[in-house]
Nucleic acid binder design. Sequence first.
DNA 1: ATCCAATTTTGCCTTGAATCAAATTTAAAG
DNA 2: CTTTAAATTTGATTCAAGGCAAAATTGGAT
Lengths: 192, 192
Amino acid sequence: MDSLNAIRKSFDQLVTMTDDDWFYFREKLHQTRFKRTDIITRFGQIENRLYFLTRGIVRHIVNTTSIETTSDFAFPGQFFSSYSSFISRRPSIYEIRPVTSEVDCYYLGYDSLQDVYLNTQCGEKIGRLAAEQQFQKKSSREVFLLTLNPREKYLQLLEEQPHLIQQIPLKHLASYLGITPETLSRIRSSIS
Amino acid sequence: MDSLNAIRKSFDQLVTMTDDDWFYFREKLHQTRFKRTDIITRFGQIENRLYFLTRGIVRHIVNTTSIETTSDFAFPGQFFSSYSSFISRRPSIYEIRPVTSEVDCYYLGYDSLQDVYLNTQCGEKIGRLAAEQQFQKKSSREVFLLTLNPREKYLQLLEEQPHLIQQIPLKHLASYLGITPETLSRIRSSIS
DNA sequence: ATCCAATTTTGCCTTGAATCAAATTTAAAG
DNA sequence: CTTTAAATTTGATTCAAGGCAAAATTGGAT
């Protein structure tokens, strides 16, 4: 199956993995599918799954009383999860929902992952490298949010994540940038 | 030595560590001291050290052409480093400088840490848990920066990190919150 | 293909925070 | 202790982005 290969591949980019380790891991994967209106992970729920996205797009929504704020998107070939809840075992402050009408994923349960950490050679190392990657992502975003004004944010997004602009509704992009849809619309029209 | 105990202690909070592992680790630690005007890590430099702070306060500064923006502070008992540079081996986009007149630390070189990963039982696990912690920290900060206005930022800081307010100059606090010193001064006077 | 709801755009007005500048306070250095 | 520079406060003004409302467009569902 091709998307299993994609998972293996993303591991191979991190570490040299034996076939034994891979088989041990693969056995624990499950497959699932979501529709646009489904809620993949709910606010307050303790995240029990680490997903690998094979089709569609999902977004992470911050639990604020007022307006929906998007903290992240995931695309095919990427892992996603309410990661802070998953690793801390505390209630999720994020909700995860599909952006596209159909979303296909593999996932690994929390306990399965702990088994992988205990029973494979490279488990811990993959876990460390993955966490380091996630850290770096949030770290760049911190600089992004701290130092740029709306126009600069949009220009940087345009340069560094053009695929995002092509496929995500403007209102979600706006909330991801921490600005209003109106402002983003104006910036966009003032450029192209 | 007491501050070595503090390091051991912070490891013990993460994982059960054998004395053998600890001795292996401890041998690789070095001690150093900085004065207020020193630059601990420079922009563009590849970070080669992971520090453990035993005395004083340091701050992480983002490399923007215009104004100095503070992305993080570290206090005694905490690790610090230009972590994204340290793990990616790419030039640092942060500068690290003392906030206090004297800063004492232990540090571990990059290669030493790789040795620890290879040659101890719990090294990888500590590395993973530490990276997960760093991730969570940046993750909360993302929500903080995305969803709060200046006043709300200050109130949350007051509640969750009061030690920070007591010991850091206002202008650095302001840049950490992504607002101007004038605005922070006004918010502060409107409250207490 | 048509309809309806959701999304995006546009215009107008408001406002919160930035900017600029000066006065005051604090603290570092000799 | 005194000096002097740096940090903070305060005031006046500006401006960028937000808020609101209505029009236009898009896209999904039937």
